[in-house]
Amino acid sequence: MHKTPIDPDVIALFDELGPPSPVAASDLTGEELRQGMRDAIALFTRGAEPVPVHRITDEFVQGRGGKIHVRLYHPETPASVM
């Protein structure tokens, strides 16, 4: 088995996040889910400068039940997304 070391910053992030919630997402209210997402975004973007948006386009992708509207935000220079 190949073992790849985990970046210390990733380990610190996991420590900050804590153990996974024992509550299923389906048991939470919409507001609780939104707050959880806001909390995660704040943690992951801490200290990061926002990337200026150069152009916005509205597109559609095919889903099982038909087309799904998506909005794409394009920076002036390409940026990585994870």
Rank of each mutant, 00 (worst) to 15 (best):
M1D: 13
M1Q: 14
T4E: 13
I6Q: 10
I6P: 01
D7A: 13
D7Q: 13
P8E: 12
P8R: 11
D9C: 06
V10T: 13
V10P: 00
V10W: 05
I11F: 02
A12R: 15
L13P: 02
L13V: 12
F14P: 00
D15N: 15
D15S: 06
D15T: 13
D15W: 02
D15G: 15
E16Q: 13
E16A: 15
G18K: 00
P19G: 04
P20S: 07
P22R: 04
V23Y: 00
A24N: 07
A25S: 13
S26Q: 10
S26L: 09
D27F: 01
L28A: 03
T29F: 01
T29G: 08
T29A: 09
E31C: 06
E31T: 09
E32S: 08
R34I: 14
G36W: 00
M37G: 05
R38L: 10
R38D: 09
L43W: 03
F44P: 01
T45S: 11
T45Q: 12
T45I: 06
G47H: 05
E49F: 01
P50R: 03
V51I: 14
V53P: 00
V53I: 14
I56Y: 04
I56G: 01
D58S: 15
V61R: 11
Q62V: 09
G63D: 08
G63F: 02
I68H: 05
I68A: 04
I68N: 07
V70T: 13
V70G: 04
L72H: 10
Y73H: 13
Y73W: 09
H74I: 11
H74W: 12
P75W: 03
P75H: 04
E76Y: 03
E76K: 11
E76C: 05
E76N: 07
P78Q: 05
P78H: 03
P78R: 10
A79T: 10
S80R: 14
S80I: 13
V81C: 14
M82V: 15
